[in-house]
């Protein structure tokens, strides 16, 4: 089983991003997804910067994939998409059907923001050239098992296994809204929130995280205890979503668990101190996403 680092979903300074990937070179991750998935206003990293990082990681033996923006609204969004799909040098993670259209005929990854809920849909994407798909996060292990019965030949399956869950996209920026700013003049407030802004209920329950135009779970989705289950189901890649702190330790913990160097409960314990909010794993078990299964609490 391989480990991937998902695209950085937050807005970090250019230097923070460069420093982050400087470290990634030495982490036991096999695949690295790069690029801006959430908001076209985030421009600390330019197209050329991403290609430079991609080349460095590629030279260090990582498989590099360029992720495309999930919500494409304007002509300039499409222009950026065409630069990505046309670069030819690296594989693309398509996060919109528009990106699938522009990737057709080349190998590409179906991102988690494309609604792949059944084998027929996956087969159509495979015909376009998809060689890997990232399961939508709300699918359960049971739905995955049924779907993989009809898996197209050569198709790899990736599961979002660690991080705040991407739950929704909007054209509205909720970070700007919190700061009473219009989206077009947002002062790039996302830079102040490197893992999103926690949204709590009126009785203090940590519930969601606002990340610009994206809404995430506040809880950290964590499937480190499910590695054996995932392996048996035929999952090829587990995705870790970058966070500002301790991502390297998280990758190492997953590596140790995958390589059977530690037991699942030891891995769970090792990871516990790096969780910056409550854990959850409900979606995997066919429950509401926010839930933490009893098995893991015991």
């Amino acid at each position: 089983m391989k480990i991937s680092l998902g695209p950085i979903l937050y807005y970090w300074t250019r230097q923070s991003v460069l420093d982050f990937y400087e470290q990634v070179v030495n982490w036991p991750a096999d695949i690295v997804y790069l690029g801006e998935v959430v908001c076209s206003r985030r421009h600390e990293m330019r197209f050329g910067d991403w290609l430079d990082v991609a080349s460095k990681l590629s030279a260090a033996g990582k498989e590099v994939v360029l992720s495309t923006q999930a919500l494409l609204e304007s002509e300039s969004d499409l222009k950026m998409l065409r630069r990505l799909t046309g670069s030819g040098q690296f594989c693309i993670e398509a996060n919109d059907i528009g990106a699938v259209r522009l990737s057709t005929g080349k190998p590409f990854v179906v991102g988690p923001h494309i609604n792949t809920y059944n084998g027929e849909t996956l087969a159509i994407l495979a015909e376009q050239g998809a060689t890997r798909w990232v399961m939508p996060v709300e699918l359960s292990r049971y739905m995955l098992a049924e779907l993989l019965v009809k898996k197209p030949q050569g198709m790899e399956t990736e599961v979002f296994a660690y991080g705040r869950l991407p739950l929704a996209f909007s054209s509205r920026c909720f970070t700007a809204r919190r700061h009473n700013l219009p989206k077009d003049d947002c002062h790039f407030k996302c830079l102040e929130h490197p893992c999103g802004m926690t949204l709590k209920t009126r009785e203090g329950q940590s519930f969601l995280a606002l990340n610009g135009t994206q809404t995430q779970s506040a809880s950290i989705h964590n499937l480190i205890s499910e590695i054996d289950d995932m392996r048996q189901l035929g999952v090829d890649v587990v995705r870790i979503s970058p966070q500002p702190d301790h991502t390297g330790e998280v990758v190492a913990a997953f590596r140790a668990a995958i390589d059977n160097i530690v037991s699942s409960s030891e891995a769970q314990t090792a990871l516990a101190s790096f969780l910056f909010d409550d854990p959850c794993d409900g979606y995997w078990h066919g429950l509401s996403g926010i839930e933490q299964s009893i098995k893991m609490l015991s």
């Binding site: 999930a70 919500l71 923001h113 609604n115 809920y117 939508p136 996060v137 709300e138 869950l165 739950l167 929704a168 996209f169 909007s170 054209s171 509205r172 969601l208 809404t215 779970s217 409900g282 979606y283 066919g286 429950l287 509401s288 996403g289 926010i290």
Partner: peptide, 19 residues
């Protein structure tokens, strides 16, 4: 307020979403 088909807030809280 969210992009339809790309919002699973409902299943995050209840297990059931529009999708």
């Amino acid at each position: 307020v969210m992009v339809e088909g790309r919002c699973i807030l409902s299943s995050y809280a209840t297990g059931e979403s529009p999708n």
